[in-house]
Design a protein around this nucleic acid. Structure first.
Lengths: 229, 229
DNA sequence: AATTTTCTTAACCCTCTCTTAACTCCTCAC
DNA sequence: GTGAGGAGTTAAGAGAGGGTTAAGAAAATT
């Protein structure tokens, strides 16, 4: 089975050289010439490795990388850049890059690193915490003390959004957007799922609550720590 | 929590420079001056990252790497070498290295790469283990105790993916992606193959199970170690 | 070419989740 | 106070997805 790669690079000559070279080694290669298009392809398709130029029109490589990571995409990313400055590399790794290659590079080295990266899906466990409640985004589960909460896909998404915005009100619409995206249910589904979440909190004596602030939305906060503004 | 690193390097001056530098950045660093000692430490302790020189007395870096990988050690390995030859890099990655740095290098770059590597585990091992189940990636076979499981190409790929992500849920889509890649079957093949795998587990009394977390995917885990909600 | 193995498809049942709707409760404005 | 609208609660039916089985197609092996 061949490796599939996405190349995001605005230099068309270099891009086609790379694509040709990768094909020789039986590596499938999609190409995007700007950051926005690259990000779209990343969201829509599965890739084993992503090759990202830093200087890109419309959206630079670092931002593409960050946005992909924030969308919990764990595809290995290899940055390509003209400058050999250490600050750039640090910035790259901070943004969530897995490897770095300075132009000009040998094609063989690129291929070797692509193959190495394709074996290395990054498995970072990311946790969100509030009081005694912990949400494990990798395991897609939440626990408090030693007990697991029972989360369905929808209540999981709900809780994720609330945890991300903890102590800040999240509007009804924002929650619906986070859970359902484009096609939204036409009834009072949200209320029902929030109810399920609250029930879980009660059952496990979590010291966290979802409170509704009229007109502003829902706040996830520690019990007895609701600062009313 | 600080990162713990093992440095295997026979040049004592360079080694102490590195150790000192890493300590400034709050990185714990063990040191071995030859390959045999290095391998012993690798087997005995847990490290976040291993720094391996290639030219080492008693046992060279490539062999140390290979032996560690064959012992199903998945610690990320960063090779340090004087020569900047592509053949060396290829040999390094073949042996199971995750990254490569050519001497002389800047200390900042070393640290940046260590931090990047410490966030993940390598997937270049040749053996995957979970409880009494062992999967040999070179022989493409699995066994428990002394019995071999009967794995077809597809169930092998399935089990590989599940073993790599052991104890974490793998979504339906991710499994299909891992097994079939681009051309995916349009029916319920996955269910059938998972069923075959489970049957194999039962027949051989493996203390490992595939559990479905409704909506979230499948988890391969040790029996009696899944915290049921 | 025949046989065995492996893979896909389809049909069935079952469980769990999601939506829906009806109802109650609370709050706030008049 | 009283009514209206939003929030909370509950239960039931629809729907999606997982588990199982068997049969036929495809691929590999002989």
């Amino acid at each position: 089975m061949s490796i599939s790669v996405l190349l995001v690079e605005d230099d068309i000559d270099l891009a086609s050289t790379i694509v040709d070279y990768l094909e020789i080694d039986n590596i499938d290669c999609d190409h995007a010439a700007n950051g926005v298009h690259g990000l779209t392809l990343i969201e829509q398709n599965y890739y084993d490795v992503i090759l990202l130029d830093i200087n890109l029109p419309r959206l630079d490589g670092l931002s593409v990388c960050q946005k992909a990571r924030n969308a919990s995409n764990d595809t290995p990313i290899l940055m390509l850049t003209a400058k050999d400055s250490l600050a750039d590399k640090v910035a790259g790794f901070d943004a969530g890059t897995d490897d770095y290659l300075v132009k000009p590079f040998e094609m063989e080295e690129l291929i070797v690193r692509i193959i190495a990266l394709s074996k290395r899906r990054s498995k970072q466990t990311t946790m969100l915490k509030l009081a005694d409640l912990t949400l494990d985004l990798t395991a897609k589960s939440a626990h408090c003390h030693d007990a697991m909460l029972k989360l369905t896909p929808i209540t999981y998404k709900l809780l994720t959004k609330l945890m991300q915005e903890q102590n800040h009100p999240v509007s009804r619409d924002a929650l619906i957007q986070a859970v359902w995206g484009a096609e939204q249910p036409d009834s009072n589904s949200l209320k029902v799922h929030i109810h399920h979440l609250r029930k879980q909190f009660q059952q496990h004596n979590v010291s966290v609550a979802i409170t509704n602030k009229a007109g502003h939305g829902f706040i996830l906060h520690q019990i007895d720590q609701l600062t009313v503004d």
